[in-house]
Write a protein that binds this DNA or RNA. Structure first.
Length: 289
DNA sequence: AGGCAGGTGGCCA
DNA sequence: TGGCCACCTGCC
């Protein structure tokens, strides 16, 4: 039912710790660790894959067989295996920012995924005032109820926005989306009315892309920046959530700053990879909870 | 039992 | 602009 384990060759190697934090640290909500198989299983687009580190630390993957387009190329795109993450990390301003250095040292090997833009937007619309386990349940409900089946009797893909548009707001509420259902339904209708909208937004420069995302109901600067950072490789996006808010207040002394001011501070102080730095700060602060 | 959680949008000064 | 609050739901 599954292919043999095949090796992947990341430019920057993974550790078990980095793999966990990257797949299940809050940037994606579609990965789960299978204790029985000692591997991670996840979905994106219509891909289903399992990942593990071999005893010699080689990253390996396998996919359902046959008839699966999930191959090394698909993994390479999603995991950004060609990226030199070590070099990107080194480019962050840790030399002049001791707190950032602490966060980076605490999460060696952390990197960003390249999720499908539509899925990142959907998952983060679900994330409003929810904790990670609850967000995962909402995404799972959406997938199982509205998305394509990826393996007979097995996991489903997240639904496309068109598939969501077919559902009623009430049906979405029954999936546990709560007040997010109305916004997600409205956004789905807007996207379904204008095919290609998301592709167009994704191809815009960061500022323009964010401005367009903000037109969707239920999408503010935080959710927009998450979608752009995790789903469109806009690394200057700097999502300010409650954790980052704490970091900026406590560690950077920015008490009383408004949200837009904090967002601006992050982009200016942390530079063109502010969002990547944000992921370290986020992981570090959350670990202290 | 009441408060709160990876936010957003509306309303009011 | 800045502050306050409702909004679903589940978990502590």
């Amino acid at each position: 039912m599954w292919t043999q384990w095949e090796p992947l060759r990341p430019q920057t190697p993974f550790t078990a710790f980095a793999l966990r934090e990257t797949l299940d640290g809050g940037q994606a909500f579609r990965w789960a660790y299978l204790e029985s198989e000692n591997c991670w299983q996840g979905t994106w687009s219509n891909h289903l894959a399992q990942l593990r580190l071999a005893p010699d630390q080689t990253l390996q993957y396998r996919a359902p067989s046959p008839n699966q387009s999930t191959d090394a190329q698909a993994l390479q795109d999603y995991l950004l295996l060609d990226f030199d993450w070590a070099a990107r990390t080194d480019q962050l301003p840790w030399r002049s920012d001791s707190h950032l250095k602490i966060a980076i040292d605490a999460f060696p090997g952390l990197r960003l995924l390249n999720q499908p833009f539509a899925e990142a937007l959907l998952c983060f619309m679900c994330s409003a005032t929810k904790q990670i386990p609850q967000i995962k349940i909402m995404c799972d409900n959406l997938a199982n109820s509205l998305g394509d089946e990826l393996l007979p009797g097995g996991p489903h893909a997240l639904p496309s926005w068109n598939q969501i548009a077919q559902a009623s707001e009430d049906a979405l509420r029954k999936l546990g989306l709560g007040f997010r259902a109305k916004n997600i339904k409205k956004t789905a209708d807007l996207i379904a009315q204008k095919p290609g909208t998301l592709d167009a937004i994704e191809s815009l420069p960061y500022d323009d892309a964010q401005a367009h995302l903000l037109e969707f109901p239920g999408v503010g600067s935080k959710i927009a920046d998450c979608a752009l950072l995790f789903g469109a490789r806009k690394y200057e996006a700097f999502p300010v959530d409650t954790w980052i808010l704490k970091v900026l207040e406590k560690r950077y002394g920015l008490h009383g700053w408004s949200k837009p001011q904090l967002e601006q501070f992050g982009r200016v102080h942390l530079g063109p990879h502010a969002g990547f730095a944000q992921q370290f700060l986020f992981a570090h602060e959350r670990a202290l909870r």
